[in-house]
Design a protein around this nucleic acid. Structure first.
Lengths: 180, 180
DNA sequence: ATCTCAATCTTGACAGTGTCAATATAAGGC
DNA sequence: GCCTTATATTGACACTGTCAAGATTGAGAT
């Protein structure tokens, strides 16, 4: 229903109707509409985390190729699940309402993971070691996040450009290094 | 009201009440709530465009410094007007509803401007000339957009990091070049 | 088998929201 | 003075999330 109607189109009443239950039955399983959305977003983080793990497990790939693949997969994950991505990182949960403790427990480690990978890539010479690790991971993540949002919101970029944009971003991240 | 209550908190009825007029009076001036939001967003583009122009008019700055300033100003503009920025680039207008023709007439040239500046900076050696101009401008803008949104939505970054993040991003953009 | 208690579900209601239709008022040009 | 146009208003409709009070169910203990 999230995929079809979008995050704003998802109404508790229509959802209850579709399940064949009364409007307020949902309140015995979730505190809020917000709590329901947080639970969905939570699943999104778990799934993405699992997908990311498979990248790093591929021994055949060089470190630079892993970075490239990571960027590509991130953008495609967002582009393939636009509504879910919006839920995971959008203002609906993070600004407007408050994220559940359960959601935070899943999301924050995911952010932390990004920082650790950045540190590792810096040590390997894939990312520039001169930059502060935290700032660099904020910027690289910001780049992926920004591209994902431009795609999702349909501003100024569309699906057919994804591969080229990822390639370009990866170049920017790694252009300092001699090892390609 | 947008600044105080946020984009979702802005209701036509409360707005009409605050102005001291009846609920539907607004419909004689704007087709929709969406049309009103588009008009506000439009102003946001005009103001940002004006601010950007002043950067490029400063002859005292080198080209690299202009890029740095451009990035900084963009992020601060977003951070200082979070609700407005959300309106300008958020899904509320671009995905969920449809942007007005008037808004498109202001927004698209703004995107185009970004591409032209990218091309110019490539020729000047500030940005890498090896990348396709369109892709590069999508990625650089994506970076700024992404950082802006992480800040606005309060995810994983806050105001006190802005300067350092901008510096880091500028480094990434320009690290290829020998002229610093 | 019965009682108990907790989980689950339901209906009724309330305060919001955007929006349309029909109606009223005011102002300006001839 | 009249007519047109712009503007404002009230009533109503279909939605939304959410709460309170009551109904139903089912499993475990006695």
């Amino acid at each position: 229903m999230l995929q079809e109607m979008g995050i704003e189109g998802l109404s508790l009443r229509k959802l209850a109707d579709a399940v064949g239950v009364s409007r307020t039955a949902l309140y015995h399983h979730f505190k809020d509409k917000n709590a329901l959305l947080c639970a969905i977003a939570e699943q999104g983080f778990v799934r993405w985390r699992a997908q990311a793990e498979t990248i790093f497990a591929q021994d055949a790939l060089s470190n630079t190729e892993k970075l490239r693949q990571f960027v590509r997969d991130y953008i495609y994950y967002a582009a393939d699940n636009p509504q879910l991505y919006e839920l995971m990182f959008g203002r609906t949960i993070w600004k407007n309402a408050q994220p559940t403790d359960e959601l935070k427990a899943v999301a924050y480690p995911s952010f932390q993971h990004q920082v650790e990978m950045t540190r590792k890539w810096q040590k390997l010479g894939v990312l520039p070691a001169t930059e502060d690790t935290l700032r660099l991971s904020q910027v690289t993540w910001g780049t992926m996040h920004g591209i994902a949002r431009l795609l999702i919101d349909g501003i100024y970029a569309d699906r057919s450009h994804i591969d080229e944009m990822c390639e370009c971003a990866t170049h920017l991240f790694t252009q300092h290094s001699t090892l390609k």
